[in-house]
Structures are given as structure tokens and as C-alpha cells.
Amino acid sequence: MAKTNNNKKKLSPEQRDELLKTLKARFEKNMKRHKGIEWAKVQTKLEAHTDKLWSLHEMEITGGEPDVVGHDQKTGEYIFYDCSTESPKGRRSICYDRKALESRKEHKPENSAIDMATAMGVELLTEEQYRELQKLGNFDTKTSSWIETPADIRKLGGAIFADFRYDKVFVYHNGAESYYAVRGFRGSLKV
């Protein structure tokens, strides 16, 4: 499992340049995800927010393949989601949150989705965001992703995840302490 770089939340100039190059290539290859958005404006925003670049780097090195999926007209922020075909490889085999992790008596996973997302500076996709993502392509056809769980479900010990099967988005429940080799999480980030 890929480790996040928690020691320093700053990229070297080489890492920054390589990330921007990767993001630009992905942006240009997948124009249907962000119609009407210009890369030059996105890059200007990214260069002004190095903390967000660091978070995008974390998304990238854990297999998320982040890409621009929208632009918030009110705030001027660009919205990135993990757009890897399957749930990011470097974020699988994790339970939902810290409480779930601590509740396991044996065979504990290495981490939780909420803790990893927080460390990376991103948020888990909500159910609505997950459904929006699926309009841009077919994601999680062989894997699944934890999504933001409503407090009333979490209070009862559950958590929700989603996937795409039979041309439909399915949202399911599981015990928050469960973890599987094919379940990770997808993040969102506003820049």
C-alpha cells in the first residue's frame, strides 16, 4: 500500500513540475469531464495553492488519477475527483474510520478511509458526487469505494459504499469496521 508523505506537505520543484505535466495530460485526454474549462486557468489556480498541489500529489501517488470534473461559479474553485477506473489501489483494504479501526480486536487493517483522506487533505465523495462521477464514465466496475456516510447510519455502526454494476450505481451498507481488498475510497478536492 502506498504511503502518504505526512512529514512535509510541500513538493519539490521536480515533483511539482511532474505533477502539473501529468494533470495537464490527463485533462487534455479527458475533455468530456470538464467542458468549457481551460487548463491555463486551472494551472494558475494550482500554482497559487501549493497545499492543494500537495493533496493532488497524494491522490496521484495512491492511484487516484485526479482530474478536473467541474468549476464552482460562486467560489471560483475547480473541483477534482479521483478518476481512476477502479478504486485507487493505494487506498484499499481499509475500514471506514478511526472508531471502526479501533473497534477491531484482531486482523486490523492498516488504516481507515477517513484518516487517510484527512491526512491527504481531501474529502470522501458523497453519494451525490459519486453519482455525478459515474456520468463521466464507468468507474468501480470491479471494485467499490467507501463514500461519505450520514451520521445516523454511522451512529448505528454502519458505513456506506458504492460501485457500478449492470449499468447502474449501487449504494450499499456494511459494518464500518469491515475491509476488503477491492474496496478503497475516492476523494474530492476544491482548488
Score class of each variant (00 low, 15 high):
113 A>C: 12
50 T>Q: 12
51 D>F: 04
51 D>V: 08
97 D>T: 13
189 L>C: 06
182 V>M: 00
69 V>R: 15
43 Q>V: 09
18 E>W: 03
189 L>Q: 09
98 R>F: 03
13 P>T: 10
14 E>Y: 13
117 A>H: 10
59 M>P: 12
36 G>M: 14
14 E>F: 09
64 G>H: 06
5 N>R: 14
177 E>T: 04
160 I>A: 02
120 M>F: 02
69 V>H: 14
51 D>I: 06
123 E>Q: 09
57 H>Q: 09
171 V>H: 10
72 D>G: 07
10 K>T: 14
180 Y>S: 02
9 K>F: 01
58 E>I: 03
65 E>S: 13
155 K>V: 08
87 S>L: 04
135 K>N: 12
28 E>M: 14
44 T>D: 11
186 R>G: 01
23 L>G: 12
160 I>Y: 05
162 A>D: 05
110 E>G: 14
116 M>S: 14
176 A>S: 08
121 G>F: 03
119 A>F: 02
174 N>M: 07
56 L>N: 12
45 K>Y: 06
51 D>Y: 04
99 K>N: 07
17 D>G: 05
36 G>N: 15
69 V>T: 15
89 K>W: 10
122 V>I: 15
72 D>W: 11
190 K>V: 00
88 P>Y: 05
120 M>E: 15
62 T>E: 05
191 V>K: 15
189 L>S: 06
96 Y>E: 02
128 E>C: 01
128 E>F: 00
129 Q>C: 03
19 L>D: 11
71 H>K: 15
97 D>G: 07
86 E>D: 04
68 V>F: 11
115 D>Q: 11
136 L>G: 15
168 K>P: 00
111 N>L: 08
69 V>N: 14
2 A>N: 03
119 A>E: 14
138 N>S: 10
166 Y>H: 09
34 H>I: 13
115 D>E: 11
26 R>A: 06
158 G>D: 04
7 N>T: 09
169 V>H: 07
143 T>V: 04
186 R>A: 04
28 E>C: 09
28 E>Y: 06
26 R>Y: 00
75 T>W: 06
98 R>S: 00
